[in-house]
Nucleic acid binder design. Structure first.
Lengths: 215, 215
DNA sequence: CCCTACCTACGTAGTTACACGTACGAAACC
DNA sequence: GGTTTCGTACGTGTAACTACGTAGGTAGGG
């Protein structure tokens, strides 16, 4: 019978034992190795070729994220779950960027990790609720900020139309042809827009608008 | 004893009953009204002034999101939870933008809604796991796409430097002064950048780079 | 009826960007 | 030792943008 091979890296034996116990409950998984620092984790990953690597985020030598980055550099398809004490936004974002498949905050229940393991081995991502929360907050902050700024700078419908075309890279002449107005009118709108937004050329204008529009 | 007043709007009596039952289990809440369409929901909200409005997303007359928008327009501090069959990305995003405090997918367990009610009345937001998932996916897609594209279009360090300055709205002359190089050199870089990225002017260039950089 | 906001349009003059090239030295890579 | 990549630099001509104005018509609200 095939069992998924799991490698655990954490500098606290107690945590490793906890994970081992959890994993042992299911016949589908087997822990084939342990590491207590980042350097070891990388070495063992290469010799043991596990199906899943569970990494504590804080370890001596190399921390979990650094290990993840190195492992994923050589093996982009590696399955990695990060265990962390913190649901720090910076950590979560960076883990996402690095490409780890799971992020579990330690104070969640054990079943959280269990579920994460199952999901990741099925090819899905699993970021625990708290980890998602931080991204969610980031996102909703962005959305509300967007609204606030939209209210600060009020553009007329025509101006919105114009600025979209500017952002698409059209010249005044092209916009004029498209809107059946004089290129001079387009330039007036452009000038008004720049004045409203408080910038001094079209480049900054587009940049500003891009920022307000969605980011 | 003070009880939080709740107004329920859903076109299915069964759902309303379900919610009522759920709410009745706690002495802290009381359902003070029901509506079976969007128009009614708004009217009742204004006459009853509930502490919390639970809105089904699909209703005759006005749907839940439209109701939410109207109510929040007049009363920006209103507490609103949206109930939905779908974890559609579009819905979730729009609800966030509108400013609802909670979004619960109906096939989640009842305790999900219970928790949402509690959270929202405590002043927190609550978007159920599935709803967060869509935002999460959106975000992680963005992150991985960013990485992919970064690899597709490889810029030299100097080019990165130049493009940042372009994005700040500097003219070629200003960049030249800043970098102690000829303005013609700056223009060469600019031209190379436009060629690499595949656009035809600085505006599009900045727009493109903005997109790749974070969104 | 007045006032404000909006869309429209123009003039002049100066600045900047863009397209099309070419070219050379340094460093890195094969 | 050749090739590629990168950063540097220039010329010329056209197109586009920007700054500074002015100004008429229309729709809506007070």
């Amino acid at each position: 019978m095939h069992r998924y091979k799991i490698l655990i890296a954490d500098d606290h034996a107690m945590v490793r034992d906890g994970v081992k116990n959890l994993v042992r409950q299911s016949k589908e998984y087997v822990v084939i190795g342990e590491a207590s620092n980042g350097r070891q984790a990388i070495e063992q990953f290469e010799t043991l070729a596990p199906d899943l690597l569970i990494l504590d985020i804080s370890m001596p030598e190399l921390n979990g994220m650094e290990v993840a980055r190195e492992v994923l550099n050589k093996n982009p398809l590696a399955n990695i779950i990060i265990l962390s004490m913190y649901d720090d936004e910076e950590y979560v974002s960076r883990c996402l960027e690095i490409g780890v498949k799971g992020y579990v905050v330690k104070n969640e229940s054990g079943s959280e990790l269990e579920y994460a393991i199952r999901s990741v081995l099925q090819g899905k991502n699993y970021f625990s609720r708290q980890a998602q929360d931080v991204i969610f907050k980031k996102y909703s902050h962005a959305v509300t900020k967007k609204k606030q700024r939209e209210e600060l700078i009020r553009l007329t419908p025509r101006e919105v139309e114009i600025i979209r075309l500017i952002a698409e890279g059209l010249t005044s002449q092209q916009m004029a042809d498209k809107l059946f107005i004089s290129p001079r009118t387009v330039e007036t709108h452009r000038a008004n827009l720049m004045k409203k937004v408080g910038v001094k050329n079209a480049i900054e204008l587009v940049k500003k608008v891009q920022q307000l529009e969605l980011i």
